[in-house]
Amino acid sequence: MIPLWSAGALTVLWLCLLLKVSRNKVAAKGYKGFWLAILSWPLLLSSELWQLVGGASPWLAAAAVAAMPVLLAGIYRNLLAMLWRKPKRIMWPFYTIGPGMLVLVVIQGWLHGSDWQQWPGFAPLGEPLSYWAVYLTCLIAAFLFLYISIVLIEQLQQYHHELPLQVVDTEMYHIKGLSGASGFAVGMAFCLAIIVAAVAFGFLPLTFWLTWFHLGLALTTLVLLAQLSRAHRPSPSPFDHDAMSAAPKMSQSTAQAVLKRAEAAVISQKAYKEIGLTLAMFAERAGMSASDICLALLAGKKTHFRGFIYQYRMKYAKQVLMGSDTKLGSVTKRLKLGANGTASRSFLKYLESRR
């Protein structure tokens, strides 16, 4: 009964999360895929919830894992929409694996329909050659989960690595918690795959292992959904990465022309005063291409957008300090030239070098 009550407890947590998302202004629910993911989650525990109210269906037990491609597709689309303005989605694993898992469920019913009711928890123990369809379905779900979790980590790492290219105050646009949740998902998916293999080959005679498998998937994906539902403030990358990688290296003359326009726009907009400024906002106001500005900064100044604006911001901060009685901590905090009112090392170095 412990696994069944655990399924009930997880469902209560899911309902609380759903209520929170529905009633509050959560950033993630505005992105594609979020509702697909959160509404398909209960399918993972459909068998356990049905047993909890007195029912029993081996078909539900076998088919529950087939919800994983749908759920993971929603999470994947949601995250990519948060990170990139023009996401390059790879959807073929979901389109191929989802129907394939349903076919395996039908094969299970055809081969083992008479044995289902006799299995504890509607799952066999050992005999991998006889019950290959059961084990293969679970292994596919586990490895798909492992693959997508690794992809999520890679996407988040790329986003944070490129953040200085497109925002000034990077700490405002960090996505917290999702990398840790994705790492947890990698570990859980790997452990679940090991458990299925151990049960199949008789090394782990775990009764009701399929129920625990469902619970492991449900718990981990619920953690991911909880992290997605936090009020993040992402800055979707404005770059067309394919076009940038295919474009020839920008010449110095072109870079200098672009930089001249960008520098004029910084001064006219007083962009160095704006906290939370992004390259997309700046480029739109200046009537320029964000990709062109990025390439020009890399080619002409060997710096990124954050470093470019920071030079103007530090120059302005120095003028404020020299022209008034304003304290260093106050200017540092207002212009975010440090942390917790403490001036950054680069700002102090800038002040010393220009005395």
Rank of each mutant, 00 (worst) to 15 (best):
K273C: 13
L136T: 13
L72T: 01
L222M: 13
V106I: 10
Q252N: 11
L328N: 03
L45T: 05
Y310T: 13
T211P: 00
L351N: 01
K176C: 11
V266I: 11
G300A: 03
V258D: 02
S253N: 12
C138A: 12
K20F: 14
F347V: 00
T221K: 07
T254P: 00
Y272W: 15
G74E: 05
S245D: 13
L13N: 13
W41L: 08
P58G: 02
L71I: 15
R77F: 04
W84E: 15
A185D: 13
F282E: 09
G113T: 05
A200K: 02
L13H: 13
L152T: 02
T342W: 04
L337G: 03
I153A: 13
Y272H: 15
V186Y: 06
A231S: 14
Y316C: 07
K270L: 07
T254K: 10
G100A: 02
E48K: 09
G113D: 03
S229P: 08
L39Q: 10
S22C: 10
L136D: 00
L80N: 15
A27S: 12
A61M: 08
T221I: 08
W110G: 04
M82W: 08
E274A: 08
R261Q: 15
F190L: 15
V168A: 06
L15P: 01
K29A: 12
L104T: 03
Y312M: 02
R313V: 01
A123W: 05
W84Q: 14
G8Y: 05
W110I: 12
T326R: 10
G329M: 10
M322V: 07
W132D: 02
D242P: 00
M1V: 12
A296W: 00
S268M: 05
I175W: 12
D115P: 03
I309E: 01
A262E: 07
I267M: 11
L18W: 11
W212P: 10
F143E: 14
L192T: 00
